[in-house]
């Protein structure tokens, strides 16, 4: 799941910023890409694509810093793991 999730998340970010070179470990906040609009799009993309609901206590900046951390979040919220 998480390998696939990482790729889908990277595809989403790269589609928004095609000129940027981003890998799964890079901090997209440090790269200056994230504004409140993109943050909302990211949350909506993750919830829609992976069929999860992100609870308030998981809406922490560290969960969204990189494709790796977002994929880990998806793994934690995925019903298959329950």
């Amino acid at each position: 799941m998480s390998g696939n999730a990482k790729e889908q998340i990277l595809d989403f970010v790269r589609a928004r910023y095609p000129q940027a070179e981003i890998d799964e470990t890079q901090d997209i906040f440090a790269l200056g890409f994230v504004n409140s609009l993109f943050a909302m799009e990211l949350v909506m993309f993750i919830e829609k694509t992976f069929e999860v609901t992100i609870p308030n206590d998981e809406l922490k900046i560290d969960n969204f810093r990189s494709a790796n951390t977002m994929a880990e979040l998806v793994d934690r919220l995925s019903p298959a793991r329950v």
Partner: peptide, 16 residues
Amino acid sequence: GPSGFTAGMVLTGTLD
């Protein structure tokens, strides 16, 4: 919602 990362989304989503 918690302040910080989420707060920006409360504003963005509500304005949307």
